[in-house]
């Protein structure tokens, strides 16, 4: 626990240096703040459940993903994931922590789901998987779980900087009929309650996460969509450039926080 304290102080400093400005659109003050780990908002009982690989239902998808990764491709498929990525426990460790990142060839921001689908199309001759299908959630959960304990290390420099700025803008502008910006709750009202739910710092170390409200595993993009529904906004598509930019922005704010996916969330 002593280690945690040191870690949190370090994060405030990082935020102060790199995210100390306010987006052009956002009038909301962006005071330096401590990003509170999502686990701080879980009850001790839920934290224990998350740590238990049998009771954490997200592990069902991790097991499924492990099988999918290793199994021979279905008819028509060129090769399995494991044909290229041998010994995934070591070769794929840390990959999830670095994404989303800008793809050098396309110049586009790509997250883990996008990387998996790129491999399916380009290397495996398989159709891409839709967001929130058990297969894509399973592969994402498995590969993210291989980075459990690794700190988020996304880059926001160079080609990523424009995506980062866009994510920050989306984060700080009001939207929807209820006219609320993400930052108003998840920066300025952290620890306060909306009904019985405590507002968190939006540290996305646990996704894909098993949300009790969903009773299934879900992507970070699905979670972002939940808030957009809440403020009665037009929804972005899962996997859209808007959600990708927000994913980069959130993961950059949470740099040095450790991956704990698949996590349990309220």
């Amino acid at each position: 626990m002593g280690g945690l304290k040191v870690l949190c102080i370090a994060i405030v400093l990082i935020n102060g240096q790199t995210i100390g400005t306010v987006a052009a659109d956002g009038p909301f003050p962006d005071e330096a703040r401590r990003m509170r780990s999502a686990n701080e908002f879980l009850s001790p009982a839920l934290r224990a459940e998350q740590a238990d690989p049998i009771r954490n239902r997200g592990m069902l998808w991790v097991e499924q993903g492990e099988r999918l990764f290793a199994q021979p491709p279905p008819p028509g498929g060129a090769q399995s994931c494991a044909s290229c990525h041998a010994s995934p426990e070591t070769s794929m460790r840390g990959v999830a922590a670095r994404l989303p990142a800008v793809d050098a060839e396309s110049g586009q921001l790509v997250n883990l789901e996008g990387r998996i689908n790129d491999c399916r199309i380009l290397r495996q001759s398989l159709p891409p998987l839709d967001y929130e299908t058990d297969e894509l959630l399973a592969l994402t959960a498995y590969l993210t779980a291989l980075s459990i304990g690794e700190p988020l290390t996304v880059s926001i420099d160079g080609p990523a900087s424009a995506f980062y700025a866009y994510g920050q803008q989306l984060w700080s502008e009001r939207q929807g009929q209820l006219n609320v910006a993400c930052t108003q709750c998840h920066d300025q009202s952290v620890g306060r309650k909306l009904r019985g739910d405590t507002i968190s710092s939006a540290v996305p170390t646990g996704y894909p996460a098993y949300r009790l409200e969903w009773q299934t595993l879900g992507s970070l993009h699905r979670r972002l969509r939940s808030c957009q529904l809440g403020v009665r906004a037009q929804l972005f598509e899962l996997g859209s450039r808007e959600y990708l930019a927000l994913e980069l922005y959130l993961k950059s704010r949470a740099r040095r926080h450790l991956i704990d996916a698949p996590a349990l969330r309220r």
């Binding site: 009038p27 502008e173 939207q175």
Partner: peptide
């Protein structure tokens, strides 16, 4: 927001100056 511009409270009787309002709610006050 007329009283406190940075408020988190929605404007319950307003349709202008809003961004990305969901289709079913557009043009209607809360």
């Amino acid at each position: 927001s007329v009283v406190t511009p940075l408020t988190l409270m929605p404007s319950y009787y307003r349709v202008d100056g809003l961004r990305r309002v969901g289709d079913q709610f557009r043009g209607k006050p809360v």
